[in-house]
Amino acid sequence: MDIVRVEVFLDEASEPLAVVTEPPFRVRLDPAELGEGVHALTVVTYYKDGSSDHHNYVFDVTRKDSVFAGHISQAPLRSPVEVDLVEAVEIEDPKPPNATIYALLPLVLFLGIALVAWWIAVRAESAVTDQPEVQTIARSVAKVAPTAAAPAGGADGATIYASNCASCHGANGEGMGQVFPALAGNDKLADANFVIDVVLNGQPGTSMPAFGGQLSDEEVAAVVSYIRTSWGNAYGPVTAAEVAAQR
């Protein structure tokens, strides 16, 4: 880079403090000519090809001992200093970086990491299907898994309640906190249509889900009847026909 001129501006001045046209590119700062406090130095460099750039220093002029002086020097600026405007490394010829280390090695590493991840994923995929013990476990799970067939002799309200409702409303309808209302002794159960509606469609905005999709009319009637006649409740049973009418 051929530097033809370096201009130095102090603080808000529009006229340069100094213009340097040949090495060494230095300027002398005398604190006696500067007020105490923070100052800014703007260094504008012009190159042979017509381009230019700038950089800024901040420094402090003080009479105190305990402070450093920002960009300019490590010590407080109390006596005149020579400030380097261009660093030696900028005038030297740049050395090209090693392309093997900074271009080829990154590429190899990139592909290496991606390949290892891909290999693990492929191995994981085959681990599921190839290993005989996994298949044995899968077969035994399939054997004991319940089938979709409905229990013989019609729907049992107590069983349906235990598997679908008790986790929130409690095994004895006692509920839990304000989130899951108690069913034992709950006046709202008097309205059969309301209870059927809540079981079928859920309560939007609360934790109560809809069971209309997974329970038949008979099963809904059985569980609603169970709720309305258990734990001291005496609101009477409902029929599958009433449920069907609400769907």
Binding site: F110, I113, A114, A117, A121, E125, A127, V128
Partner: peptide
Amino acid sequence: ALGALYSAGMHYTVNVTM
């Protein structure tokens, strides 16, 4: 490392642990 590691999140395997 940043670019290559992102590719590790793109594989789908049915084994949840893997």
